[in-house]
């Protein structure tokens, strides 16, 4: 565990806490994409199947459980909570995510490190995570008034990805046999997806304006 990895994980954790707090405090999930949350649920379920087969550390297990539990909580609130579900932007959140899921799964069947159920599902989760934020970014683009917390949520998620790249560079330089090309390429793609958002986020912050993304 190096400082970049820890900082990245913490950003990921903070992003989820920000989202939970926002929805819970305002009783509203306005501007939050249910599709992105459901994609993350698929990502976490497929990736953390190893909770049942291998133990890495208490830290690792705890974080996995937090990510799973929090994502399912958000989905439950958005779908079933009496007050919150009414605030969901159903008509705006129309990204057809089956067009992300199917190609990612087919790619995982072809491009993987080992052709086993666990490893294919793990690889699928890596590919799917790279594009899981897209429905959220599209929804933000359609929302005129992005509230601070939703903006911060996406910014923290993007920071987590950027820090993971530094983590990989650090590990590559310090660990003799550390290589994971599929993860690196997907991670770089995932970070590139955020660049446009980062630009407008930082600009609105410097100019002290409300964040809005051009259509």
């Amino acid at each position: 565990m190096n400082i970049f990895r820890l900082a990245g994980d913490m950003m990921h954790l903070f992003s989820i806490i920000v989202l939970l707090l926002k929805i819970n405090a305002t009783r509203s999930c306005r501007g939050v994409s249910l599709k992105t949350q459901e994609l993350y649920a698929i990502v976490f379920v497929c990736r953390y199947l190893d909770l049942f087969t291998s133990f890495i550390s208490l830290y690792n297990t705890t974080m996995k459980l937090i990510f799973l539990l929090s994502t399912f909580t958000i989905i439950y609130w958005m779908r079933f909570h009496k007050v919150i579900r009414v605030t969901y932007d159903r008509e705006q959140d129309t990204f057809r995510y089956q067009f992300l899921i199917l190609p990612c799964f087919l790619l995982a069947l072809v491009l993987n490190n080992e052709f086993s159920a666990m490893e294919v599902l793990w690889t699928f989760s890596i590919y799917l995570e790279a594009v899981a934020i897209l429905p959220q970014l599209v929804l933000l683009q359609r929302t005129n008034n992005i509230d601070n917390l939703t903006g911060n949520y996406v910014f923290l998620l993007g920071s987590y990805r950027a820090l993971y790249i530094l983590n990989w560079i650090y590990r590559f330089m310090t660990e003799p046999n550390y290589r994971q090309y599929l993860v690196w390429i997907s991670g770089i793609v995932q970070t590139i997806v955020y660049i446009d958002f980062f630009y407008y986020y930082i600009r609105s912050w410097r100019n002290n304006e409300k964040l809005s993304l051009p259509a």
Partner: peptide, 10 residues
């Protein structure tokens, strides 16, 4: 073999 690679990142 059979166990598959261990993934230590989240």
């Amino acid at each position: 073999p059979g166990e598959g690679p261990v993934h230590d990142e989240l």
